[in-house]
Design a protein around this nucleic acid. Sequence first.
DNA 1: GCAAGGTC
Length: 943
Amino acid sequence: MSGGGRSIRVLNVAEKPSVAKSVATILSRNQGLRVREGRSRYNKIFEFSYSINGVPCQMLLTSVTGHLMEIEFDERFRKWHSCDPADLFQAPIRKVVPQDKVDIKRTLEEEARRCQWLVLWLDCDREGENIAFEVIQVCTAVNSRLTIKRARFSALIDREIHQAVQNLVQPNKLFADAVDARQEIDLRIGASFTRFQTMLLRDAFIIDAAADDRNLVLSYGPCQFPTLGFIVERYWEIQSHVAEEFWTINCSHKADEGIISFSWMRGHLFDYACALVIYEMCVQEPTATVTKVRKQEKLKYPPHPMNTLELEKRASRYFRMSSEHTMKVAEELYQAGFISYPRTETDCFSQRTDLHAIVQEQHGHPVWGVYAQRLLDPGAGLWRNPGNGGHDDNAHPPIHPTKFSAGEPGWSQDHLRLYELVVRHFLACVSQPAVGAETTIEIDIAGELFSASGREILAKNYLDVYRFESWGGSVIPTYVLGQQFVPTTLTLDSGVTRPPPLLSEADLLTCMDKEGIGTDATMHDHIKKLLDRFYATKDVNTRFSPTNLGEALVMGYDDMGYKLWKPYLRAVMEQDMKAVSQGSKRKTEVLESCLQQMKACFLDARVNKVKLLEAMAIFFERSNRSSGDEQHASGEVVRPCGLCLESDMVLRQNRDGNFMVGCLGYPQCRNVVWLPGSVSQAIVTTNICNSCNPGPVRMIQFTFRRLEIPPEYNTVHLGCIGGCDQILSQLIEICGTRVSARGRGPPSVSSSVQRSNMRQGACIYCHQMGHSSSSCPSQFSGSQNARSHGRNVQSTTRQGICIHCHQTGHSSSNCPSRSSGAQSGDSSISCNMCGAPCPLRTANTTNNRGRKFYSCQSKECNFFVWEDSLNSGTGGTSVQRANSFTSTTNSGRNGGFGGGGRGAAHAAAGTFVSATGDPISGRKCFVCGDPSHFANACPNRGY
DNA sequence: GCAAGGTC
């Protein structure tokens, strides 16, 4: 069949070669399907006959590989020095087909010329719709008569595809518009901030991250920076964590089955005194009564079908593979046909997927083949229809095996691992949950509740194949309701709060997913970028720390008050994109408002660049290099350069206060006009000179110093530097210019900052007067020291209070309360118990923050009393503290508190014992000080 | 030399 007669010739274009092949195979029913090469070796052309709504069609089905086009700035703005980075917010941009996609474009052009219809089979998401319009642009450019149609399909299965082609619709321009806006905003923000911060910082400091830091790019991007922000924020959280002591009561009981540990149902208390009172009550009446025995069946469900995010997280957790490497290996397995498409959000299988067939294929595997066989055995009862994770990208199924393998010759260890994960995960998904019998026992000791639980695994089910997860079993003896026993041990133990751990790769992916940073196909790229840019490092446990560079950048913007490192910006953009795709906002409207805001933010950041410099100075030594990139980047444009014809010339003031108009192409282009030394002020106006070329040349409003120019000249003059201005020429001749001895070299960043510091009179490191930051005695050059120094500046000086005790006047590192958990005061009393000094201190625990107490300095004594209770006439107490105040009973033999053993004898007499069994004498009620009763019997007890 | 998004 040649496509002659009345049949229509239809060019069909899919997003990727694999989809073209699948659609062609489905539509042709694999009959009469021909394949030929296109211009691009990856994108074949499939041909077959088909009938659309009764109309005979000669179908051509080919593909692109994702986006066909990119946006870029016009030539004039592409060189870093060719313009002010602020110009990038409005510089002209265009869409072009990059060199590596030209072959695909040619194929489309050649085929489109000979077709009447163009049917778009791009993925049904916003990016897919945008690619559709790229294809339309290329095809209609060579054939304007094309009828354009869109196929909507949600899975590559027969019914969907046949249905899609019989119900063709129009492409959705709004979806494509949303992506256009996103692309433009990303490019403009990314390029402007990247150029700005690179040129500002790279040459001003010795950044030891890279071997050659002159090639370092300090990139900014709306996805990479929030990702860095997550890492830095967690790091700061850990740095500022102040360990707080807490107290808990532990109880154990020795039974025939072993020792059972009961945990206190209050968890823990931060108030020692309160914990102690309760503990005293328990020791006083230690008999435990079983108040609840709960037995129930618990199910542990298998995971949902796996999408990209889960694949990356699990490969990181189970194999410590980086997300970037995981995706590389997954792509190779996909290309070789062993697993399904690895970039998918979908975590539920379509009803129509033949899950049994996928299981069937694994029957022969030497390790999990038997499990796969059991799954399909109805008698085993192991099968379960997979769960639904609630995500569906309407384009791809969850990741699952597509071809059996027991390992291929070319596979690495990671190929084997990842294939195994995909297969085992799939088999787990279609398996019954694990079943356990859980027993929970609750006991009551003197009104306090404690609990213990045990689990018996009844059926492992999916856990038999999913070796990556476990579910521990533990034995618990039989207790009956109302049963009484005396605990074997009852201890008051202390612990300290710990900071959260550094973010793992899986944690980071979770944060990104939650805040909408990146897509399933790009998240790993953003993480890798942070490592490539030396913003973060990853340890062997896949946990991320910021580098000095990463922390300094975030700190700099944070100090400016900008949340550019937070995910909000991306979230707002995402909302706007949604509004555009739904038609409630126009693309131009979103672009205008977003770029306007970001430009204002950019200009403001530039004004506040000292914050970035200060933050960098905390971690890095100043460099002597003087590239002056920063100065080049700033200044008002006066005219295009007539010498290099590439860059603009801008008005600037050098460090001595003299004005010049220099080319931004410096040092390649050294074109410069020095202005008279008598100029005190120069402002670029919007007036254009109508005689000088190349134009436009903007006029400058000059103000001269009265005493430095002849009396016949005005102090104010609107002049042109293009060569036409006689007055300016005369003044240059009369007054001369004040070119510095070193010539045009612009001031180095370091010297300009030092100068501004001196002017303000304070060092940017320590905020003290009398020296500059470069000679600050507190400056460390070692990076680790620099970081800890930086943290102190960050958390104490900046906020003005110690993060530990919340007092002013010292930093957290030398906080007097740091080691003791409380702040020492001046006054002290003599210890009621041993006579040693008891200084007055201030509690810093959650429940008693600010409350004063006296505490004996003698570790053996530890007399303790609240100041307010002392004033009200109540007494103090002396106890053995942390981990050592133990009541040892001998319930096994005597079944009672008053039984044998040294401790028990004292306890029976109402005396407290230490862990060594020695009595603690002189006990009296903690609440009121009365020795005739314990606190639990005190009439004044408030709880 | 800048971004993020497709996909190979």
